[in-house]
């Protein structure tokens, strides 16, 4: 991507552009600073954010920032959880391949935290601080960092919640397509994580029924402690279309519910997350 060419194109349409983002040199410098922290893939987003700052009415991005801070809170939760789990090493995660998987997920979640922390200021916002967590959820998961089965159960709940949380906000950030794009790209990574965690639970024998996808509102053998994560996942009607038996074909209610993941609103997600947040 040739950044100079993009800046020149903007200059042609709006010669006073740099009065909005300081001088051209300042703009390039500011952009270079951001560029150092972000990968190439994130650069268009940062550029979009800069233009946003220059042209957007200040009140339009407020709710987008709120949503990104909400996402950041959830990413802090996941990143901290996996980091603490991976630190336990084979004492918690006996299988070497599983440990590698947890380390990979940990790296992704930490990357999400850093990405959001870099993007939020570009939209004129302030990233929220990392909360203090209690991953035992006040004793519900007391052995979360010493019992692998408990650890993976909490991991599954976090990933499936994360997928629903991002999905629930997509329509609320449509006004900013660069933010929407990034959120979509995080959303599907959370779903990859969820799939892998569920497969690991199955292959470790922690559940003989759990699948990489969500069947009905089933917790995959974890039980009532995580039931709110799956509330509404048993939906089989999409946009008024009944998916069970659709087209006269033998699509079961289970398959119909599995085929569509359901969004979850911010309030319900925060109610789940708050069980793990001390302050």
């Amino acid at each position: 991507m040739n950044m100079y060419r993009i800046f020149r194109a903007i200059e042609e349409i709006d010669p006073e552009v740099y009065e909005r983002i300081n001088t051209r040199r300042e703009a390039m410098k500011e952009f270079a600073q951001v560029g150092k922290k972000l990968s190439l893939a994130a650069l268009p987003l940062a550029l979009g954010a800069m233009l946003n700052k220059a042209y957007a009415q200040s009140n339009t991005s407020a709710s987008v920032v709120d949503i990104l801070n909400y996402a950041l809170t959830l990413e802090y939760l996941e990143a901290t959880f996996y980091s603490m789990g991976a630190t336990q090493g084979s004492a918690l995660i006996p299988n070497a391949n599983d440990l590698t998987a947890i380390q990979k997920i940990s790296a992704d979640e930490t990357a999400h935290v850093n990405f959001l922390k870099a993007v939020i200021p570009q939209l004129g916002g302030t990233p929220v601080n990392k909360p203090n967590f209690d991953f035992t959820a006040n004793g519900t998961f007391a052995d979360v960092f010493s019992n692998y089965q408990t650890f993976l159960a909490v991991a599954q709940a976090f990933e499936d919640t994360g997928v629903r949380a991002y999905k629930g906000q997509a329509a609320n950030i449509m006004s900013n397509s660069t933010v929407l794009q990034a959120a979509l790209n995080i959303h599907s990574v959370e779903a990859r994580h969820a799939s892998k965690i569920r497969l690991m639970r199955r292959l470790n024998g922690f559940s003989n029924s759990v699948k990489p996808w969500i069947t009905g509102n089933d917790t995959g053998g974890i039980g009532s402690s995580v039931q709110p994560v799956y509330a509404g996942e048993d939906n089989t009607v999409q946009a008024g279309v009944q998916i069970t038996g659709i087209g006269g074909l033998s699509i079961s209610a289970s398959a119909a519910s599995e085929a569509f993941d359901e969004p979850l609103d911010m309030q319900s997600v925060l109610a789940i997350a708050s069980l793990f947040i001390k302050s």
Binding site: V163, K167, E190, A191, A194, F260, D261, P263
Partner: peptide
């Protein structure tokens, strides 16, 4: 957009 989101995460589960 929400509907596409409901589907893409299932595709991502398959992919993984």
């Amino acid at each position: 957009l929400t509907l596409a989101g409901k589907i893409v995460s299932v595709e991502a589960r398959h992919a993984a």
